[in-house]
Amino acid sequence: MLRGRLGSFLFQSIAFVLALGFVSLILLAVGASPLEAYKNILTGSVGSMRKFAEVLVSFVPLLLVTAGLLITFSAGLWNIGVEGQIVLGAIATTWALRQFVDSTMPPALAIFLSILAGMAGGAVWASFAGMLKTFGGVNEIFGGLGLNFVSTALTLYLIFGPWKREGVASMSGTEPFPDVFSLPQLPDLRISPWALGIALAAVLVVYLILQGTYFGLRLKAVGRNFRAAYLLGIPTWQYSLYSFLICGALAGLAGAMQVTAVYHRLIPSISSGYGYLGLMVAMLINYQAIWAVPLTLFFAALNIGSIQLPIVMKLDSSLSGVLQGVLVLFVLLVEGARQKFLKKA
C-alpha cells in the first residue's frame, strides 16, 4: 500500500496538511486568522478572471524555468545558476530589441528574433556553469551561484551605465520599449496568450524528451549513475552539457518573456526569483514533468494571491514564500520518512 502511487499520494497529502498546519501556527502566533489568510489568498488568485490572468503572468516564466530544471535534474545536476540564466536571457532580449527599435523591421519579427536571442543568452550563460563543471571540476552549485552574482552585477552595470535613461541613473530600469514591441495581450487582461502558449509548448517538449526519447533515457541514465552510464558507452559529459544548454535556453526564454510580455524593459530584479522558486517546484514534484503544470500554477497562485495579505490583513506577503518553502521541506521530510519505513517493512 505504501509503495504504490496511492501511497506516494497519501504521503504527499500528509506533507501538505503538515505544511498548512505549520504556517497556520505562524499566523496564529502573529495574531491573524489562518482561515481568513487562506481565503484571501484564494480569492486574490482565482477570485476573478483578472486575477487569474495575473497568476498566469507569473505562471509562464515559472513553468519555463521548472521545465528547464527537469532536464538538468534528470541529468543529476543542481542548476542553481538558473536564476542568472533568466537574467542573461532578459539582457540578451533587451539587447536585441534595442537594435531593432529604430529599424524598419516588422515588430513581430523583431520580437521573435529577440526571444531567440534571449534563449541563446540563457544557453550561453548555462554553458559557462556546464563547462566549469565538466572541464574545471567546479561543482555546478557553486559555479551557478557565482554566475548569478555576476549576472546581477551585469544588469546593474547596464541599467546604470550604457543603457541608462536620458539623464537618469535609477534602478527602476531602462527606457520602456514602445508598445509595438510587446507580445500581444488579451483585451483588458495582462496575460499574453503567446507567452502562455510558448510556456505550455515548452513543458510539453520537455515531457516528450524525458518520456519518449532515447536522448531522455540516456540523460536519465547519466543522472542515475554517471559511471555506469559512461561504461555503457553514453558520452556522459556531453550529455551534462546538453542538459545545461537546454535548461539555459528555457530559462533564457523565461527572461525573454519577462521583457517582452511583462516589464517591456530591463529592470534589476528581472528574474523575480523564479529560478529559485522553480528549483523548489522541481524538487516538490520529484522531478516528474507531468506534475509541473499544476504545481507551478499553484505556486504562481500563492505568489499573486498573497498580495492580498498586506492590503487586506496588513500581514507581510513574504508569508507565501514561507508557505512554499515549508511545503517543500515537509514533502522532503515525509518522503524521507516513507523511505525509511519501506526499508524496515
Binding site: G325, V328, L329
Partner: peptide, 22 residues
Amino acid sequence: NLARLTAALGLALLLVLVACGG
C-alpha cells in the same frame, strides 16, 4: 539517496531562509 535527500533538505531550508529573510 539519503545523501541526496539531506542535500535537498539543506537547500530547501536555505530557500526558506532566503524567502523569510528576503
